[in-house]
Design a binder for these strands. Sequence first.
RNA 1: GGGGUGGUAGUUAAGUCGGUUAUAACGCCGGCCUGUCACGCCGGAGGCCGCGGGUUCGAGUCCCGUCCACCCCGCCA
Length: 656
Amino acid sequence: MSASNESGGAETPAKSPRFIDDLKRTHRCGDLREGDIGKEVVLFGWVQSRRDHGDLIFIDLRDRDGLTQIVFDPNVSDEAHTLAEATRGEWVLGISGRVRARGEQWSKKEQKMVSAVNPKLPTGMIEVVVNQATVFNRAETPPFEVTDQLDTREEIRLQYRYIDLRRTPLQRTLRLRHEINRVTRNYLSDQGCLELETPFLVKYTPGGARNFLVPARLAPGKVYALAESPQLYKQLFMVSGFDRYFQIVKCFRDEDLRLDRQPEFTQIDVELSFVNQDDVFKVMEGLVFAVMKQALGIDLHELFPSGRFPQLPFAESMAKYGNDKPDLRFDLPHVDLTDTVIELDGGGVPFWQELVAKFKNGTFRRDIPPEIVKALVVPASANLSRPQAEELEKGLRDIKGFKGLARAKIADDGSWVQSPLSKNITPEARARINEACGAKPGDFIFFQFGKTDVVHTVMARLRVDVAKKMGLIPEYGHGGKWKFLWVVNPPLFEFDEDTGKWAAAHHAFTRPVDEHIEYLESDPARVLCYRYDLVLNGFEIGGGSIRLHDPEVQKKVFATLGLDEAQARDKFGFLLDALRSGAPPHGGIAIGMDRLVMLLSGAPTLRDVIPFPKTNQGTDQMTGAPVAVDASQLAEVHLRPVVPVAPGGNKDDQGY
RNA sequence: GGGGUGGUAGUUAAGUCGGUUAUAACGCCGGCCUGUCACGCCGGAGGCCGCGGGUUCGAGUCCCGUCCACCCCGCCA
């Protein structure tokens, strides 16, 4: 079978050298170039494709670095040629042979000399003519082809993930991920950060993301939680004096999945002592610059000559873009018309008049309005048709609280057409709004009014949808643009309408902006904090805060949250103790590694940057996890099933 | 928990108003071929139409249920 001695066994002394034992790999399949012509080489790899011409057989041999054409010529080695005849796709081969130029060859079909060079392959100038070969392993026909362009259902790709991972796009993405890991380790180490590990099995903490629970066999009836993040522990490292820390670490959250959310994901986690917000930014900007340069070859200095990313106050981000992760690859800012509408006394529009009344009678406060009016102008140059405008509105209908999008097309005389507002709006109000929006004839204005958060959500999505429709950004992917920015200083608290209480918008250990400490008790809504998100092209890729290390301020924050000393101790005991034991001022950040790789690689989903991802239902298509276990295994960890469980197995065992 | 899209050969898809033997491409198998690289030519095999039930003389097609995958809302930084 084998042209080498692979099947020969030990009884007959090997005549020709054995692959791996004697014949070591000399090159990878992407290595060989014209300069290697004449060399004797040994290649190992998988059969990408085979072209059998009766006498000559061509095989493209693949490994993670590329393809090399190998040629089996019966005049060179009859044995190797016989082996190649039987060879099929995805078999694993070892070959030795001589590198030669492809040059020009006589084509029988065309009856003339033709170039045998393949300009599509980096190795396309050469080929290896095989004089010895072995089959390390055969392969069953794969369920789908190992090609770059593949439209096989993801369900099947995930089931045979080890085959999918052979494909170049995924190989390239995971290699990029490796590079980002390496750059991160080197850079943060150089910044004086120590890579320290934190536990995965931690204490359950209520609030925030749902924890995965792990039953504790040694403590009947009790559970561990899988860590949502190393948050508490990294702060303890600061308390302990490690000063600067980083970790590339898995985090676990038992929430519903999305395109960009997996139950286990990776963070680049950083915490620094004796720093302010800007110090954290500088360290992370350096990291991003290094990653972009070393992993992607992109010099961000061309886009950000100062080496710094712009900083956008949270309030401004909400006002102009409707969310805290604006995509700055295009402009299309929102126009907040609330003040204008109030000054116009509603401008004749009944809905607006109702709104204005609430401001006038003191129901609503002006500085933090519970309801607002916003507009977005789509310029005439976008050539938006009426059906397209309606389509845009349809795309927003699934937003909870969405009540419809009013719109107006600006006629040549400045009047509004195609608009439900046109019959009520006063000419004066119309002119003022046109002016405020900078709207010109032919432009569309979209309006949304009502609850502030709904208006923001609707208009934020509209802004992105319009940009896609106008071709300002691609459906997915970076489009060659890298708009990094910091969104800074959001409110410390948010009011929970359900409980009627103030809650920490991020967590209770975020440091308030110094100038706002006086409002902690009197006007919590005004208090901003040292919290920040790193945003790229409309995605939040990281976030963090400067931590609250002052026990006096901490006490006031707890008071606003409605926690007295005892309750706070009960909830955060050991951390409070630690912070009172001599805690340095500190702060940190965590970058979502998976999202970062997704955005940098242009991958359409997070699943494409994780080697073994879960499906939307949180299952592993390949292994079938999670599976049922039998009652005795549950009993061992002191659990009794409340749903029917198959004796000894999962549903594939047909135990139901 | 809710809404949407999809599931037909190994893969991707077509399948009309419910009607005879369910098509095609790629892949696979066999044969031929000394310059291919999306090789070419000839031939062939391959189907629980996701699963279960119903309507009907007759269901891939209509109805009900269910499973799986994907996208979104809720949820989640």
